[in-house]
Every structure is written in C-alpha cells, then in structure tokens.
Amino acid sequence: MIVARGVHKSFGQLEVLKGIDLTLGEGDVVGLIGASGSGKSTFLRCLNLLEVPDAGQIIIDGEDVLAKGANVDRLRRSIGMVFQNFNLFPHLSVLQNITLGPIRLRGLERAVAEGEAAELLASVGLTDKIRAYPRQLSGGQKQRVAIARALAMHPKVMLFDEPTSALDPELVNEVLDVIGRLAANGMTMVIVTHEMGFAREVADRIAFVHAGRILEMAPPAELFGNPREGRTAEFLSKVL
C-alpha cells in the first residue's frame, strides 16, 4: 500500500534522512522509535509530502507520488495525519473542524457530514463537545478531535507524529486507547512515538530509526526482547 525506497532529505547542510526504506501493507501498524533528531518525524512527514524528499521514491497505492504531475492534494485526502500539537482550527467549532474537509473535499451535504462527524465524535468519546471550540478542550480531548477530523476524510492510512508528546501524563491513555482501537479495527498506521509500552502493544513491527536510517525493524517482541543491533539495545536501555 505504501512503499518508500531510499528516501533522502536534507535541511541545508544537515542530512536528516540518509536513505529510508519501508513497505507497508494493508492493515499494517508500524511504530517508529528512536532518539530526538533521528529523523523519524521527518520521514513520517515525507510520507504525505509535508516534507518533499530530495531523493528516493514514495509509492502509494501504486502511484509514484513524487512524479511530476502527481496530484498531491488528492493523495493527502487518503492519508490522515495527527500532529504532536493537534493543530485544530481555533476559529472553528469541534463540529466544523471535522466537517470542513468532508463538505469541501468529499462533497458531502452538510447534514450528512455532520451525521458522520457526530458518529466519529461518539467513537472518540466526545459527543458532548460537538459545539465546543478547541480552546475549551483539554489536550487529550483536542487530540481525540484531531483524530476524528483525520478519520472524517476516510483515509486509507493514518500517520501519527508523536500524538501524546504534548499531553499531560494523565491524558495520554485516553488518546492511546483511541489509537489502539483503530489498530484493532484494521487501520493501516505509522506511529512515531516515545510510548514504548504502547508501541509494543499496538504495532506489528517496530522500526528503530537512528541517524537518518532504519537500523533495525522487527516484530515488537523480537525488537524489544532481543535487539540485534548494539545501538538499539543502548537506546532501549535508556527508555525502558
């Protein structure tokens, strides 16, 4: 479903990604772990072209998205993204945040879009916040709205960029629960996270990113229990 090959990205002199390969099948859940600055977030952002790779290939559903003439806007509709800082639209209500895309881009009638939004909000446990504005929500509630907003486009893949890093500790679980349920329902996902326990539980594969490369990728039990690379073991010993 997603194939990334030899993805390179530099910011000025700094080479952040030095050739990353990743293949994602339908229903796969991949956790990207690694130290800050390892390039895992940048790679995630390359997958929906919020960052444009300098070299390499990204193929989504058979379409080379870096080819000239590829319709990036259309492509992004099928890739949901959840940000560390939520990025809800502060001038719109929760309901409007969720229905903006469906009404404008999927061409849904307002009533239909609002019905879908209500269902999505129920699924993330926020039915009572439908008329609220983002500033009235806690961090965990904001992030759950952000997830509902991404899901409202009916994406084939969901990308999570450190979805709980900006949350107070007591709010982390409500967000992880929602993501875990998505995984259980078969959503294809790539999750950049520092929550090792969660990654272990929810991911089919864990990729350890180090210095712009995937150093090691394996099922969680294997990577956490018996890492092949010294650097992986070193990283895990610091965070576990």
Binding site: N48, L50, D73, R74, L75, R76, R77, I79, G80, M81, F83, N85, N87, L88, F89, L100, G101, R104, L105, R149, A150, M153
Partner: peptide, 22 residues
C-alpha cells in the same frame, strides 16, 4: 502557527484553500 497550514494541507486542501479557509 505554520501548523495550521500543514493541518489544512494534510486534510487534502490546496495551498489556496488552506489559506482562504484556515
């Protein structure tokens, strides 16, 4: 916040749509 434009783009809005709506 630049994250607002990014959020708009990630939903699938074009640059101009994100500008106008968000």
């Amino acid at each position: 916040d630049p994250g607002q434009m990014e959020a708009g783009r990630s939903i699938g809005f074009s640059y101009w749509q994100s500008m106008r709506l968000i």
